[in-house]
């Protein structure tokens, strides 16, 4: 069996997810390269290929010129994977969608705000068909490895579809709410081993919501713990701007 051809691409992103993908021990890297053939990867190699079995897309879509490029990759790929929060949910790039275009253009390029064209930030699934996703900001390296194995073996990508609370409980954490902070964990997809709540933080929602989040209950909880409606909405803004359900009742 020929090794599947794997390629990495980046759009609006910090490329941290790609770096996370190769944050492997040398022997793991050799195992990975025995299983797949990495044919394009700006972070590590300069070769190019015509077709891909698996294309991993990092970054969100923020310019019109991104669209034909992504569509072209889609047309040349058997399986296309949203790789990391920016591609999967729009990521923190989508924060700009809450502002006026002229304001953020001026903030980024004060001397020449119109030099670069830009559009509303979108997740890649809003532009092309996405076959699988690897969530997180950044992605979890071992989850990346697991999904590559799943795809190579022809299995369904094994991404948890339960809340971060599951992992917090497994880690026997004191609930973030009990510590007087707020947390999106109850409606956010686990798989990160509740990294932020387990280390003194709270869940920002970088992995997106579970399939059927009870957002009403989540909002009730946040209000019960003394958040105003605006403060609560701010909590959701960081990673969930493109999730229409989250902002359905909010400004």
């Amino acid at each position: 069996m020929a090794k599947p051809k794997v390629a990495f691409f980046d759009f609006a992103s910090c490329e941290g997810c790609q770096l996370s993908a190769i944050d492997l021990a040398p022997e793991q890297m050799l195992d990975l390269l025995n299983v797949v053939d990495i044919v394009e990867f700006r972070e590590a190699i300069s070769e190019k290929a015509a077709k891909y079995d698996i294309a991993l897309i990092e970054g969100s879509i923020t310019r019109d010129c991104d669209v034909p490029r992504l569509q072209d990759i889609r047309n040349r790929s058997k399986v296309l994977v949203a790789f990391g929060a920016c591609a999967h949910t729009g990521g923190i790039n989508a924060l700009k969608n809450f502002q006026k275009k002229e304001d953020y253009q001026k903030a980024v390029y004060p001397t020449d705000p119109l030099k670069y064209e830009t559009t509303v930030t979108r997740a890649i699934s809003e532009v092309v068909q996405v076959d699988a996703f690897i969530p997180g900001c950044p992605i979890n390296t071992m989850e990346f490895v697991r999904i590559v194995k799943n795809l190579v073996l022809g299995k369904r990508p094994d991404i948890p579809d339960y809340s971060v609370c599951v992992e917090c409980k497994k880690n026997e954490n004191i609930c973030v709410y009990e510590k007087g902070m707020h947390c999106l964990g109850p409606v956010i997809r686990a798989g990160c081993d509740a990294k932020c709540p387990s280390n003194g933080g709270y869940c920002y929602g970088c992995r997106g919501t579970v399939t059927k989040p009870n957002l009403h209950a989540q909002k009730d909880v946040m209000q019960k713990y003394n958040l105003t409606f605006d403060q609560m909405t701010d909590q959701f803004k960081l990673f969930l701007q493109r999730n229409r359900e989250v902002f359905k009742n909010a400004g």
Binding site: Y162, V166, C168, K169, N214
Partner: peptide
């Protein structure tokens, strides 16, 4: 049921 977050905490513990 309407209140439930379906977070699974009750089962885990």
């Amino acid at each position: 049921g309407d209140k439930c977050l379906s977070c699974g905490s009750c089962i885990l513990v």
